Amino acid sequence: MKPPADVPIPPDLSRRYSRTSGGRAWLGSLQGLICGRLERWDLEVDLEPGQLPWNGHGGVVVPVTRKGVPAALKVAYPHDEARVERFALRLWDGQGAVRLLESDAGTCSMLLERLDAGCCLQQVPMETAVEVWGGLTRQLSLIPDQRPEWQEFHHVAARAEQWSDDLPADWEQLGRPFPRWLLEAALEVCQTRGAVGRRGGTDVLVNTDFHYLNILARPEGGFAAIDPQPMIGEAEFSVAPLLWNRIRDLPRSNPGRGLLDRCREFSAAAGLDAEVARQWSLAREVENALWYASRPLHDGDLARSLWVASTLAGRTLGGLPAAHDLPAPGK
C-alpha cells in the first residue's frame, strides 16, 4: 500500500476548532490520526482531486475503500457523544443505522459503510420523511438486554431530573430571558416525564439527534441513521429535532397548527404517543433556548427555540419573528 497523502481538512471544521486550545491541538493531530487509521485498517482515500471530505459539527468523514469496497472513515473530536456512538452502532448492527465496520476508542475513529452523502431527508417531501423516519425509529428502538454496551448510555429520566435543577438556576442567572410560565411548563414536563421514565418500563435505545440531515440514503436502497446521540428512555424524546428543523416547510397560513400536526404525524408513523412527544419537545427546546441565551451571536437560534417551545405549550410568544423568517439551525 502506498503511503497516504494528506487529506484536506474542510475549512469550516478548521474554523470551528481553532477557537480553543483543545480544538487547535486536535486539528494539529488530525492528519496523523487519519493516516494512522488508513494504515491500520488498510484503507485507500477515495477523493477526487480538489474534493474535500465530508464533515459535521464534531468531526471529519473521509470516503475510503478497503480492498475495493467503498467505506467511510470518521474521526471525531473527542467528546461524550462521540465516545458512545460506537456502542449504539454495535447494538443496531446496521439495522436502521449505518453499519459499523471497525472502531478505535483511543482516536475516536470509526470505519463505517458508505452511504449517499448527497441524499438525506432534508430534501425529500415531508410525507416521505414521515414514512422513512417512522420506520427507522421502530427499528432503532431496541429494548435493553444484557449486552455490555447498554451500560454506556445515560438515561433520559436522569437528564430530566438534572434539568429540574439546572433550568431555573440558568434562567435566573441569564436575567430571565423569557416568561416564567414557559420555564414552568418545561419544569412540569421534567417532573412528570422524569418520574414516569423511572417507573414506566418503556425504556428503549433513543437516538436523541434524529433529524432530517442525519438520515442518509443507502446506495442499494432505503435509508439509515448517522451520527446518533444515544440515550435510554422514552422513544418520544427523539421527536423534538424534527420540529425545530424544516420550519419553513410548515404551512404559512397557520405554522403553529402545522407544528403540532407534524408532531402528531411523525409520532403516529413511529407508533409513539404524540402528547408525550409534545411534552418532551417543549422541555428540550426550553433547554436549547437557555443554551442559546448564554452565548453571543445566537439571537436567531434563541428566537427559533422560543417560538417552537411556546407554540408547543399552546401560547406562542409575541415579539418573535414570523415562523418562516426564523433561521434554520446552524445558519
Rank of each mutant, 00 (worst) to 15 (best):
F237A: 07
L317T: 03
R246Q: 15
Q146C: 11
L136T: 11
L47M: 12
R248W: 01
R99G: 09
T65F: 06
V84C: 12
A185L: 02
R138K: 15
R262C: 05
G271I: 02
I215Y: 04
Y17R: 07
L216P: 01
V124S: 01
E188H: 11
R198Y: 05
E113D: 14
S310F: 10
H57E: 15
R193W: 11
A283W: 09
P228R: 11
C263W: 03
V206N: 05
A274I: 05
L272S: 09
L91K: 13
R295N: 03
L243D: 01
Q146A: 15
L115G: 08
R159F: 03
A225T: 08
A5L: 01
M231V: 10
N254H: 11
L91H: 05
S141Y: 01
A240P: 00
V64K: 12
D249C: 06
S18T: 08
R37F: 02
P53C: 13
G233D: 07
G28K: 03
L89M: 06
C120K: 09
P219L: 12
A160F: 10
E275Y: 07
W280F: 15
R315D: 13
G175T: 00
W133F: 13
V239T: 08
G319K: 10
E287P: 06
V7P: 06
G50M: 13
P296S: 01
P321Q: 02
T311K: 09
M1D: 12
Q229M: 10
E113W: 10
D299Q: 14
L13D: 04
E161L: 09
L306S: 04
D104G: 01
T208L: 15
M231K: 06
V189P: 04
L326Q: 03
L30T: 08
W244V: 11
A217F: 06
P251T: 03
P321W: 07
R252T: 02
G94I: 12
A313M: 05
V75Y: 08
S310R: 11
E188S: 13
F237D: 05
G118P: 00
D42N: 13
V286D: 08
T208K: 04
V189F: 05
L216C: 09
M1K: 14
H57L: 14
G94E: 12
S310N: 12
R180H: 09
E81A: 15
P241N: 05
R15L: 03
A293H: 06
P228H: 03
A224R: 00
L101R: 11
A323M: 07
D93C: 07
A217S: 14
S305D: 11
F210W: 12
D325L: 04
A185E: 12
V204I: 03
E265T: 04
G59S: 11
L167S: 04
C190F: 04
K331C: 12
P241D: 02
L182W: 00
E39D: 12
R193G: 07
C35D: 15
P255W: 00
Q173F: 06
A105R: 14
D227C: 07
G258R: 01
D12I: 02
L73G: 13
G134F: 04
H154S: 14
A195E: 15
R264S: 11
W41N: 12
N207W: 10
L142D: 06
